[in-house]
C-alpha cells in the first residue's frame, strides 16, 4: 500500500459513565479508496466518523489511539491545524439533507462561503464555480437553485447540493455519514451512483458509514464490520461477500433483504449470534 491517507490506530473511546463506545479500532485507507464502515446502530461507526472530524459530543472522550491524516496527527491537534484541514482536505456529506442546510441562507451563499474563505475566490468567481458544481451533480436550472432557500428544494436536490459542497474544494477525504438513509429508495440509487462517479473523477477517498450491506457492495472497495464498538472483520468487499469469516458478518449478510427472492422472510440476527460475537470480542480483549 502507498502511504496511507487515513490511519486510525488503536482508537478507544468511552462515555462519561465509563461505557465503551470504541474498542481498539484500527483502520487504514489509501488515497482514492472507498472504505465502508458497517454495523448496527450503536456499533460505533458514526463515532469513528465524528472522531476523525473532531466533533465527538462532549460526553464521549477518546482515551487511546491515534488518527493520522496524511501523516498529521488529528487527536489533540491545535485548532488552527484542524481548521486548515477541515473543509479543504477533509469534507463531510451529512446524513440528513433536511437539516444540514441553514434554513435562512440562500443555497448560493452556503455553497460559495468555503470557496471564498478557503480558496480565496471573488464573489462572482465563487458563484460561477458553484454553478458548475451544481451542474456536476446533475442539477438543472442552477441559477434558480443558487437563489433559492433550502425549503424550496426537495430532499434529493438538497443532498445533491450538499454533495456539491463536499466536493467543492476537491478534498482528499470525504466522510459520507449514511448519506442516503434519509432519502427514498429511488433517489438513494442515483445519489450512490453520483458519489461513486465524482469519487472516481476526483480520485477522492471516501469513508462510507452505513448500516446497509447492499450499499457497501455497490460502492466500497474495503469494508470494516463493527459490533459494539469493536472491529469484527476487516477485508475487501469482494472477500466479505464470498468468504465472510466471522459469524456476525455471516448473520449480517443473511439478514439483508433479498429482492431476488420474493416472499422470502427476513432473517434477523439471532441472540445466539450476538452472544457468540460478544464472547469472541471478550476473548480478543483478554488476549
Amino acid at each position: 500500500m502507498r502511504r496511507p491517507l487515513l490511519d486510525i490506530e488503536g482508537l478507544s473511546a468511552r462515555t462519561a459513565d465509563g461505557q465503551a463506545v470504541l474498542l481498539d479500532v484500527s483502520l487504514l485507507m489509501g488515497p482514492g479508496e472507498v472504505h465502508g464502515l458497517v454495523g448496527q446502530s450503536g456499533a460505533g461507526k458514526t463515532s469513528i466518523a465524528k472522531a476523525v472530524l473532531g466533533i465527538l459530543p462532549r460526553a464521549i472522550t477518546l482515551n487511546e489511539g491515534s488518527i493520522r491524516f496524511d501523516g498529521t496527527e488529528l487527536i489533540g491537534a491545535p485548532a488552527a491545524t484542524l481548521d486548515k484541514l477541515l473543509g479543504t482536505d477533509i469534507a463531510l456529506i451529512p446524513q440528513d439533507p433536511m437539516t444540514a442546510l441553514n434554513p435562512s441562507r440562500r443555497i448560493g451563499a452556503q455553497l460559495t462561503d468555503s470557496l471564498r474563505l478557503k480558496a480565496g475566490l471573488s464573489k462572482s468567481a465563487a458563484m460561477e464555480r458553484a454553478r458548475k458544481l451544481l451542474e456536476e451533480v446533475h442539477l438543472t436550472d442552477t441559477r434558480r437553485i443558487l437563489r433559492a432557500y433550502p425549503h424550496e428544494l426537495s430532499g434529493g436536490m438538497r443532498q445533491r447540493v450538499l454533495i456539491a459542497s463536499a466536493f467543492a474544494l476537491n478534498p482528499r477525504l470525504i466522510i459520507a455519514d449514511e448519506p442516503t438513509s434519509a432519502l427514498d429508495v429511488t433517489v438513494q440509487k442515483q445519489i450512490l451512483r453520483l458519489i461513486r462517479r465524482l469519487q472516481r473523477e476526483h480520485e477522492t477517498a471516501v469513508l462510507f458509514v452505513t448500516h446497509d450491506l447492499g450499499v457497501v457492495a455497490q460502492i466500497c472497495d474495503d469494508v470494516t464490520v463493527l459490533f459494539s464498538g469493536a472491529v469484527v472483520e476487516q477485508t475487501t468487499v469482494h472477500h466479505l461477500f464470498r468468504h465472510p469469516r466471522h459469524v456476525y458478518t455471516r448473520a449480517l449478510i443473511a439478514s439483508n433483504p433479498r429482492y431476488d427472492q420474493p416472499g422470502a422472510s427476513l432473517r434477523p440476527i439471532s441472540d445466539e449470534v450476538i452472544a457468540d460475537t460478544l464472547q469472541s470480542l471478550d476473548a480478543k480483549g483478554a488476549s
Binding site: 466533533i55 484542524l82 477541515l86 469534507a91 451529512p94 444540514a100 441553514n102 452556503q110 462561503d113 468555503s114
Partner: peptide
C-alpha cells in the same frame, strides 16, 4: 447544535463566524 452549524464547523470556519453567520439569524 443544529446539523448545519456542525457542518459549518466541519468546513473549518472560525467559531465567531459560525456564531454570527450560521447561528445568529435563526
Amino acid at each position: 447544535l443544529q446539523d448545519y452549524v456542525v457542518l459549518a464547523r466541519i468546513k473549518g470556519f472560525s467559531r465567531l463566524r459560525i456564531v454570527l453567520q450560521e447561528a445568529m439569524r435563526n
